[in-house]
Amino acid sequence: MNLEEILFQIFLLIAAATDTTRISTVMQDALLLQHRAQWEAVCRDPALVPAAVAESLRLEPSAAAVARIAAEPIDIDGTLVPAGSLITLSTMSAMRDERAFTNPDAFDIGRTDQMRMHAVFGYGVHRCIGEALARAELEEVLAALAARIPQLQLDVPPTISGHFGVRPVSAMRVSWKP
């Protein structure tokens, strides 16, 4: 890569990581606070934090879909996608696939069918380079909130919209009593 390409990649990494991790933080906290028993379980047992993060990423991914260009012809259930075609891969659909997940629309931090390599971070050469950092940030935020403010309450849930790229999220409101 030349210097311009390197700088663009660095900028993209910073911008993408900021938006996706911020949205994922909001959604994981909202999901847990909407499922009070699971929030309380995380507050009691910090070992549940990684599972709570993974399940939040599965149920409400910050990136709804990604675009790719078919490098070669692809047969999908009898439909031929020609090489060079722009295709959209739905992260949201993949992570609610009933063939991969039991009760896929349910939020369950005790899920035993979680993917080993989480699909929200992509695959192959397109696998997110910031996955380890994103997971660490999400886990640290959740662990800190659960340890310091277990009485956290959701006053106004966020709304997340969109079905492509990084999904915009509205502000949520929380409160707590010391």
Rank of each mutant, 00 (worst) to 15 (best):
I6P: 00
R96G: 11
P157V: 06
R127L: 13
I160C: 04
R173G: 06
Q38A: 09
I14P: 05
M172D: 06
S56C: 02
V156M: 05
D45Q: 11
N103D: 13
D29I: 12
D77L: 12
E40D: 15
G130D: 08
E139G: 12
T18K: 13
E55L: 03
E131T: 06
V49W: 06
V120M: 08
G165F: 00
A17S: 15
A67I: 11
D77Q: 14
A63H: 01
A64V: 09
I109A: 07
W176N: 01
Q114E: 09
A54K: 02
V174Y: 07
L133V: 15
S62E: 03
P46I: 14
S161D: 09
G84F: 07
F11M: 11
L31G: 04
A147C: 02
P168I: 10
L80E: 15
A16C: 02
A132F: 12
V66M: 07
V166Q: 08
V53H: 03
S85R: 07
M27Q: 12
P82Q: 13
A67N: 11
H35G: 09
L7E: 07
N2K: 08
C43P: 07
A52M: 02
E140L: 15
M172G: 12
I160A: 07
M95G: 00
E131M: 14
W176Y: 14
M27V: 03
G78C: 03
F11Q: 10
G130S: 13
A15P: 01
L32C: 05
G130Q: 05
V53K: 03
I109S: 08
L57H: 02
L145A: 06
D29A: 13
A143P: 02
A16G: 15
I69N: 04
G165P: 05
Q151P: 02
R116V: 14
R116Y: 02
P178Q: 09
L59N: 03
Y123M: 12
T91F: 07
M95A: 03
I109V: 14
E137M: 14
L152S: 00
T112R: 11
L145P: 02
D105V: 00
L89S: 05
P46Y: 13
T88C: 04
G122Y: 02
N103P: 00
A106W: 00
L133Y: 09
V42C: 10
D97Y: 01
L138N: 12
P150R: 01
H35P: 15
M95L: 11
D108S: 03
I87P: 10
D29M: 13
R22N: 06
Q34T: 08
A71N: 13
Q114R: 12
R44N: 10
D45S: 10
R99V: 03
V42L: 11
P73C: 00
A144K: 14
L7M: 13
E55C: 04
M117P: 00
S175F: 06
P158Y: 06
T91Y: 07
R68I: 06
D77C: 12
L133M: 15
P50E: 01
T88Y: 07
I149A: 10
V141P: 05
E131Q: 15
D105P: 00
F11H: 03
L57E: 08
T88R: 05
